[in-house]
Design a protein around this nucleic acid. Sequence first.
DNA 1: TCTTGCTTCTCTAGTCGCTAGAGATTGTAG
DNA 2: CTACAATCTCTAGCGACTAGAGAAGCAAGA
Lengths: 150, 150
Amino acid sequence: MPAIAIGPLADETGIKIPTIRYYEEIGLLPSPPRSRGNRRLYPMAAIGRLRFIRHARDLGFDIDAIRQLLTLADQPDHSCAEADRLARIHLDDIESKIARLEALRDEVRHMVADCAQDRIRQCRVIEVLADHGQCRHDHPPASSPVINNR
Amino acid sequence: MPAIAIGPLADETGIKIPTIRYYEEIGLLPSPPRSRGNRRLYPMAAIGRLRFIRHARDLGFDIDAIRQLLTLADQPDHSCAEADRLARIHLDDIESKIARLEALRDEVRHMVADCAQDRIRQCRVIEVLADHGQCRHDHPPASSPVINNR
DNA sequence: TCTTGCTTCTCTAGTCGCTAGAGATTGTAG
DNA sequence: CTACAATCTCTAGCGACTAGAGAAGCAAGA
């Protein structure tokens, strides 16, 4: 039966070789059989699976969510409510990140707009950073990254 | 002269103790003098410096940009064109992140909206992920994270 | 003075999702 | 048979922290 080596697989899917091995290591992609010389020989189905992973990563799903989505994708008779739920959670997440980034954008925009371009002594950028009281918005909730995917 | 220990300093600035030590380690905050018992005793000015750092981090500036901004802030007679430039670069960055997130949001939104909530077999979420051809947008430029601050 | 308990110290390791490099082996084309 | 490319494993690094161990310092009350 047809098989594909890791290099061509990387070319096919746009995922780098070390990343493919990394996905195997963390159990996202099953370990493929090996050649006599110990090289990975993937079944052609691996292409689809990796493309799925890549696409989900591009859409900002984290590895854990992808793991769940893959499990779901493997059970065609299962209800898709769970997949829907995962996607909705992710959507909420994206929306809140956008909202927070927009607040940042407005703040930085004001900072830049107010700068008279003279000496540091009167620089609005520096001033605003030094004194939170000059801010137009509150501190964000300290934890929770604005985003953290690639 | 008055000094402040690391704990109260953390309380004052909202930056956690290990993070303050980390900032020292990477040279963002100068090493303070120590007590006889080897504890850090910060000059009161450290409060302002850390608040500056915290605020800039909250606004999404990365450590390197903050390092540059701090250097600038220490030179009141210097032109503020450079601070302005840094802020503008950062603004562009934020704006492009927003744009990319909005594209993601639209895509995920469509995925969710189109899902009939039936079996996995017909699930739009899974389907779209499995087949990039069903996408409403292109792959992003593969590298470049959407964002990566806290 | 002693004890209790909080604070701080250093050090190491873990997080996430990769990426890069060393040095050894395997496979293939000429 | 010889190059050279592809792949192997292993370790370490990125950014910006966070968590925990185990030891030591310090202040207040008995």
